Amino acid sequence: NQASVVANQLIPINTALTLVMMRSEVVTPVGIPAKDIPRLVSMQVNRAVPLGTTLMPDMVKGYA
């Protein structure tokens, strides 16, 4: 199973992502692939993302 990107903490709306905010985990449904973590750094979330939430492409500005 492919690992997805999961929030390692509460990420407030419009926050630029950093490595410490994200972890990889095998979850259902599948979200953004963990291999894309380096690409996500500095991108902003367009909503508040609670701890443990799988990041989906529509949550990150400029990803999709």
Rank of each mutant, 00 (worst) to 15 (best):
I32D: 00
A7T: 13
M22A: 00
I11Y: 02
I37R: 05
M59S: 07
S24W: 08
N46R: 13
I11F: 01
M56C: 15
P38E: 12
A48T: 11
I32C: 05
Y63S: 03
T18D: 03
A7W: 02
V20I: 08
Q9R: 07
G62F: 12
M21T: 03
A64H: 11
I32H: 00
I37V: 11
E25A: 11
A3K: 05
I13S: 12
N8V: 13
A16P: 13
A64D: 09
P50E: 07
S4P: 01
N46D: 11
P33D: 15
A34L: 03
V6W: 02
P33V: 10
T54M: 04
R47I: 10
Q2N: 12
V49P: 02
L55N: 00
L10E: 12
T18P: 00
V26A: 14
T18F: 05
M43T: 04
A34T: 08
V45C: 09
D36C: 07
T15D: 04
G52E: 06
V41C: 11
S24R: 07
V60K: 00
K61T: 13
L40V: 06
G52H: 14
Y63H: 04
M21V: 04
I32Y: 02
I13C: 11
G62C: 14
M56T: 07
I13K: 07
V49N: 02
S42W: 12
L55G: 01
G52R: 06
N46K: 10
A64C: 15
N8W: 09
Q9E: 13
E25Q: 11
A7P: 01
D58R: 05
P29W: 05
R39V: 08
M21H: 06
I32K: 00
T28H: 06
L19D: 04
S24M: 11
P29M: 07
N14C: 12
V5N: 02
E25G: 06
M21P: 00
Y63M: 04
K61C: 13
L10V: 13
G52V: 02
P57W: 12
V45H: 02
P57K: 08
I13Q: 08
S42L: 11
I11H: 01
K35C: 15
N14A: 06
I32N: 00
A7Y: 02
K61N: 14
T18Y: 03
P33Y: 12
D36H: 08
D58L: 11
V26W: 10
P50R: 12
G62E: 10
I37H: 03
V5E: 00
T15M: 08
G52A: 09
D58W: 12
A3S: 11
G52K: 04
N46V: 08
V49A: 06
Q44Y: 14
V30T: 12
V5S: 03
M22R: 00
T28I: 05
M21W: 02
L19F: 07
Q44F: 13
G52F: 07
R47K: 14
L51F: 11
V20Y: 13
V20N: 11
R47Y: 12
V60A: 02
P57T: 14
R39C: 15
L55W: 01
V20M: 14
A3F: 10
M56R: 07
V45Q: 00
L19C: 11
S24T: 09
R23S: 04
R47E: 08
A34I: 07
A16S: 09
A16E: 05
Q44G: 05
N8I: 06
V49S: 02
